[in-house]
Simulated scan of single mutants.
Amino acid sequence: MIDSVTATALESALTGLAARQRAIADNIANVSTPGFRAQRVAFEDALADSIRDGSGRVDPSMERSLEPTRLDGNNVNLDTETISNVDTVLRFQFASRAMDGQFQSVRSVLRTS
């Protein structure tokens, strides 16, 4: 059960979301750093493909944002980062609850046997 595609995909999603959370924190910390380019973490498309292929395992990829920069060469937009952070937190909570559901199922089976 723990090695199921669902559990593996949830683990990959949590890993990707945690990486995104770190990137957002780094972006916000460097909002005033001249020349700093925001980081973006992607994994959702690769995760969907991986689930279709039956594995569910992916590693997140991190790239520098190609969004336009300010005069100081920095392209961190605090509004974008804040919205992305809220979205990421909600997704992480959802995936955590889904993973907890997986463990609850295992615990339930172990109690009845």
Rank of each mutant, 00 (worst) to 15 (best):
L78A: 10
V31K: 07
N77A: 12
V109F: 13
T88H: 07
L78C: 08
A9F: 01
R40D: 13
R52Y: 08
Q104F: 09
A95S: 02
Q93N: 05
D53L: 14
P60D: 01
Q39E: 12
Q104A: 13
G35S: 11
A95I: 02
I28H: 09
Q21Y: 02
L110E: 14
V58S: 03
F94Y: 02
G56N: 11
S32A: 14
P68N: 15
R111Y: 11
V31E: 04
E44F: 04
D87C: 01
M99C: 05
V5R: 11
R97H: 13
D79T: 14
S108D: 12
A13T: 05
A98G: 11
R40L: 14
T88C: 13
D72K: 14
R22E: 04
L90I: 07
L78I: 15
I83N: 12
I28A: 11
A9R: 00
A95Q: 02
R97L: 12
Q104D: 13
T6I: 12
E11T: 15
N74L: 05
V31Q: 08
S108Y: 11
L47K: 02
R57L: 12
A19L: 06
R107T: 14
G56K: 10
T88G: 05
V89A: 10
T88L: 09
T33P: 04
R64A: 13
A42F: 06
M99N: 02
T88W: 03
F36L: 03
S65A: 14
T33A: 05
M99K: 08
L17D: 00
N74D: 04
I28W: 10
P68F: 14
S108F: 10
R107Y: 07
L10A: 08
S84R: 15
I83Q: 15
E63A: 10
A25P: 00
S61H: 03
V41M: 06
D3W: 08
D79K: 10
T69C: 13
N85M: 15
I51R: 10
A9E: 03
E81M: 12
R70L: 07
D87R: 04
L78S: 08
Q102R: 13
I24Y: 00
S55W: 04
P68M: 15
S50T: 08
A19V: 05
S55D: 12
D59W: 04
V41Y: 02
A18H: 01
V106E: 07
E81W: 04
V58C: 06
E63S: 09
R52Q: 15
S113V: 09
N85F: 13
R111V: 13
T33F: 02
E11C: 11
A29M: 06
I28R: 05
T33L: 06
V106C: 09
R52G: 11
G35L: 06
S84P: 09
I51K: 13
A19R: 08
M1C: 07
V41H: 01
D53Y: 06
G35P: 09
T82G: 09
V76E: 00
M99R: 11
N27C: 03
S55F: 06
S55P: 03
S113G: 08
V86N: 06
S12R: 01
N27F: 02
V58A: 06
A38I: 01
P34V: 04
I24V: 12
S12E: 07
D49A: 10
E67V: 11
M62Q: 09
F43E: 01
I24A: 02
G56I: 11
D87Y: 02
F103M: 10
E44H: 08
A25D: 06
V106K: 08
